[in-house]
Design a binder for these strands. Structure first.
Lengths: 235, 235
DNA sequence: CGAATTATGAGAGCGGTGCTCTCTGAATAG
DNA sequence: CTATTCAGAGAGCACCGCTCTCATAATTCG
């Protein structure tokens, strides 16, 4: 089910299958953008594609599986947005801000996808193995900036109490290769990542109305403060 | 609709109405705890109460209104948990940690309610006026600790770039009365509040699996780091 | 008190959902 | 050419939110 589209289809049937799978996915994504995850209806997707609703089940064995596929796409999408933003600036501090702004812009333009990734998990959903790498792209973009600063010797010493190494998963240190991050540095990157999606979620969900007066400005402030906390220096 | 239960009912009808409204609410909350917001079904609540599903609509004119009532309850609940936790410690640093732990404990024990408050907003929901004060109780408990430290002259100067006053809503400064907080101090409290629900959300949604090795320990680290960022001093 | 009004509950019904099953026809494999 | 696999359609099940009508009970008013 939801067979990998990249394995070159040979027969006409396989080609048609791959094509229709993509069509279902793009139609679903379109509708997701309009009505949000909870309202996304398999039957509506089938209607848009002018096929029987039962036929969809030949391609995705449940609504949850369709949503999972969309989650994977969205993770790659927001990760790509972060990576693209990172390329638009050279100096670590500027790169950091660029990534933050890029992620926020993506989230504002794709709020339902963002909700799908970081909002309430869909009930029947369990993250498959492949999701992890896609999900890691965005935080890895942040980590790369810190690694760059560290390599240049421009990483400021941590201000507050340090994080004990035992609190960080061993897989995590292994996942960040070249930089040889300390546990404390990893912890700060994790917190920065958490802060980024946290503040965007707050803005998207309306928790900041009557609190902040300038969402974009407060976001930039948050980005700088969070970067400084991670050890970056700003102009 | 969803008439205030506190206005003393006089006639038998009003008494019965108030009673049944409460029964619906508690049944709904029970089911919410089991299946989560998205799966909460008005018909199932009606079945549990052995009444026709259509009769529920005499008390809540839609599923969204029922959810709104549950949101209000949950906001007060988590706020009360924070306030109770605050009372269990005297010194500001300990109070801060106590509140954080209290909120986390509440969230772990009421994950679906927590999702209702800080997860993806329910589609048809628009926060009514009364919700604001209930929603403010938890962050206000945090602010109170900072105010206490400030009054005692024990608030450390801010480490990183300050927040410009223009970024904070005027209503917000007016809402925090006695403490005469600066915009920068408010911004830090807002960020601490955002961090608290952000890190709990990450833990609840599984974004920390394979990242942290000890959720409770990492949470405590986050609480300390966040407190220090806000200006508190820890032993 | 009796009549008029109002609030409440039950039931049927509408259009929607996810999902399963069976049946038919077309593409593939041997 | 035949046997098998696979894609699609349709009917149907159980559930959902919500609306409407109708009868009955509680309240208010003359």
């Amino acid at each position: 089910m939801y067979t990998d589209l990249m394995n070159a289809p040979r027969t006409a049937r396989e080609r048609a299958r791959a094509e229709l799978t993509r069509e279902i996915l793009t139609a679903a994504r379109r509708q997701l953008g309009e009505v949000g995850p909870s309202q996304l209806s398999l039957r509506a997707v089938a209607r848009e594609l002018e096929m029987a609703s039962s036929a969809i089940y030949r391609y995705f064995k449940s609504r949850d599986e369709l949503l999972t596929a969309l989650i994977l796409e969205a993770y790659n999408d927001i990760g790509a947005a972060a990576e693209r933003a990172a390329e638009r600036a050279a100096e670590p501090g500027e790169r950091w801000i660029a990534i933050w702004r890029g992620v926020r812009a993506w989230a504002l333009a794709n709020r339902h996808e963002f909700a799908l990734l970081f909002g309430t998990p869909v009930p029947g959903y369990a993250a498959p193995r492949e999701t992890a790498t896609a999900a890691g792209r965005m935080p890895l973009a942040l980590a790369a900036v810190v690694a760059e600063a560290k390599a240049a010797g421009a990483l400021a010493p941590p201000p507050a109490p340090p994080c004990e190494p035992a609190l960080i998963d061993a897989d995590m240190t292994a996942l960040l290769p070249d930089a040889a991050f300390s546990a404390d540095e990893i912890a700060r990157i994790v917190l920065a990542w958490n802060r980024l999606v946290g503040i965007v979620s707050y803005e998207l969900h309306g928790h900041l109305v009557g609190v902040t007066a300038d969402d974009a400005g407060f976001f930039d402030y948050t980005a700088r403060v969070s970067g400084a906390f991670t050890g970056l220096r700003f102009a």
